[in-house]
């Protein structure tokens, strides 16, 4: 890790300015609520800032809640106040990192990235439920586990202590680079018996809603480490990559 620390730090520090607006139709107030702005780490997840949005909009939120209470009485739906976001009509999957969502759907938009906050009509056929931070943590840890299954057959993550798992998660949640990397360096270790990862953990996403692409790719070809370009060529053999990438 020592030699690429600066790169890791730069990636970690990548942030996006995001502007949150509540969906007009869900407001029963005469005044349009103000927009709420946040700088969010690209590697983070939207639900980790939901509390801040809720507190900012708490006035409207309370009105909504009261309105719902009277209109729907006890017939209230279990998930009625579940928060979700959309950009240009596309519900945003909270389990993708913020940077990935931006790159997929909004890379050509002007910053700040403006997204819409919803409390109604949760699109349950498109996005996963997320009613607590534990759900985000569980999702994050399962991706870390899966990556380690590819890198070390899961041997590193399974021998870690619970407190190390927690440290990894808290490092990400609280944007603490050193705390996160103190544990993650073990997961990125290649000094084991093989001297390299078994496979490179990656996924290719596209906006076409087709399956994401994932396959087993070794990190070396005839002793030479593969570049990102090599990986792209291996995964998309039909696409003639511009060598200038």
């Amino acid at each position: 890790m020592a030699n690429d620390r600066e790169v890791l730090r730069d990636i970690w520090d990548g942030k996006l300015p995001v502007c949150f607006n509540i969906n007009d139709e869900e407001i029963c107030d005469l005044q349009t609520p103000e927009s709420y702005y946040l700088m969010i780490p690209r590697l983070s997840y939207f639900p980790l800032v939901w509390d801040k949005i809720l507190i900012f909009h708490s006035r409207i939120f309370c009105i909504q809640k009261v309105k719902k209470h009277f209109v729907k009485h006890i017939h209230s739906d279990r998930q009625e106040m579940e928060m979700w976001l959309d950009y240009n009509g596309t519900p945003l999957k909270w389990h993708y990192p913020v940077g990935l969502l931006y790159d997929l759907y909004a890379y050509d938009t002007q910053l700040p990235w403006t997204v819409t906050v919803h409390f109604e009509k949760f699109p349950e056929n498109e996005i996963l439920h997320c009613n607590s931070r534990e759900v985000v943590e569980s999702h994050f840890m399962s991706t870390v586990k899966e990556a380690d299954a590819l890198k070390h057959r899961g041997q590193i993550i399974s021998t870690m202590q619970k407190k190390e798992h927690t440290q990894l998660w808290l490092g990400l949640q609280n944007d603490k680079f050193d705390q996160f990397w103190a544990v993650n360096k073990k997961l990125m270790d290649t000094s084991g018996s093989d001297g390299e990862f078994k496979h490179i953990p990656f996924r290719f996403y596209s906006t076409d809603e087709g399956p994401f692409i994932q396959k087993l790719v070794k990190p070396f070809t005839e002793g030479q480490p593969k570049s990102l370009l090599n990986l792209i060529e291996e995964v998309y053999p039909d696409i003639g990559c511009d060598k200038g990438i």
Binding site: H95, I127, E134, S138, E209, F212
Partner: peptide, 23 residues
Amino acid sequence: KLGIFSQQEHPYTRTPFFILHPC
């Protein structure tokens, strides 16, 4: 609960599905 099954994205349809954890 979360250790046995949880909602995840289906790798092919990209829609929410539950999975029984493969660990």
